[in-house]
């Protein structure tokens, strides 16, 4: 399989009410290009699923959206990405408030080696979101509740976060992200390390979060994409092949590569 020359994305990569817009985005790791000319809108309060074979650049693209790629020395991004119409790669933009607005949940649960409470309170504390202890307690409780973890941990808020089960840890990480009250949440295969029951809980959670947040989720599970997302974007070798409403992608894919992928011919 080689990179398709002069490719244009099939389907509907743009939408009426975009929260995030990417235009002609390319990403390089040193000399090597990992993303080619990707243009995509992520609409407000929608869940968009990014799918594609391993190594096609889903994580790389996702990490561009809150400039997490800045932490990798050799990584270089071209093109334009705008959040509410502001270019996030503008040299004047500070990544700190940007990342407070665009939160991220990672593939492997990565709770800090602190108590459950301190894990959640970390973001609000550094950003100065709470004026008082009471306010902070409130934020912690609310975030845990929204992440569906409150009932399980309310009696041991001061136990270490690393002592939770994998699924609980991942919900803790989601709660930690919610606590900062972001506008967009990026999730990179949030369920890949979890069992089916924990996965179901997180999927439920994503569905609920949609009311308040814009969510982009990378997943390897077609079922998951179908269950949680409204739109699905298919990446292939660093190119965005097709973007369409999720049910359409899974029933009548436009592009042959998409079809090949969802019917399991490679992946």
């Amino acid at each position: 399989m080689s990179i398709i020359e002069n490719h244009t994305t099939n389907g509907q990569p743009f939408c009426k009410d975009p929260k995030l817009t990417a235009r002609g985005v390319g990403v390089f790791y040193g000399e090597k290009q990992a993303i080619f000319d990707v243009s995509l809108d992520i609409g407000a309060n929608e869940v968009i699923a990014l799918i594609g074979p391993s190594g096609c650049g889903k994580s790389t693209f996702l990490r561009c959206l809150n400039r997490m790629n800045d932490t990798i020395d050799i990584c270089r991004v071209t093109g334009a990405i705008e959040l509410d119409g502001e270019d996030i790669y503008d040299p004047k933009v500070d990544v700190v408030p940007l990342r407070a607005r665009v939160g991220m949940v990672f593939q492997k649960p990565n709770p800090f080696p602190k108590s459950i409470y301190d894990n959640i309170a970390y973001g609000p504390r550094i950003h100065g979101l709470a004026q008082s202890r009471v306010e902070l307690d409130e934020i912690v409780e609310k975030s845990l509740q929204r992440a569906g973890l409150w009932n399980e941990v309310k009696d041991r808020l001061h136990a270490p976060g690393t002592g939770l089960s994998g699924g609980q840890q991942q919900r803790l990480c989601i709660a930690r992200t919610i606590a900062v009250d972001p506008e967009v949440i990026l999730m990179d295969e949030p369920c890949s390390a979890l069992d089916p029951i924990a996965t179901a809980k997180i999927e439920e959670l994503i569905d609920e979060l949609r009311e308040n947040y814009t969510i982009a989720i990378v997943t390897h599970s077609m079922q998951q994409a179908a269950r949680v997302s409204q739109r699905t974007a298919y990446f292939h070798l660093g190119q965005l092949i097709e973007v369409n409403p999720t049910d359409q992608v899974f029933t009548t894919p436009e592009h042959a590569l998409t079809e090949a992928y969802i019917t399991g011919r490679f992946g």
Binding site: D94, V96, P97, A100, R101, I126, H127, G128, L129, A130, Q131, E135, I139, K142, V180, D181
Partner: peptide, 21 residues
């Protein structure tokens, strides 16, 4: 989500001066 009048964005922006220093 918070009771005070400032939005989260404003609070974050407000904290930035101290944090940059």
């Amino acid at each position: 989500m918070t009771k005070s009048s400032m939005t989260t964005r404003e609070k974050v922006e407000k904290s930035m001066k101290r944090r940059r220093a």
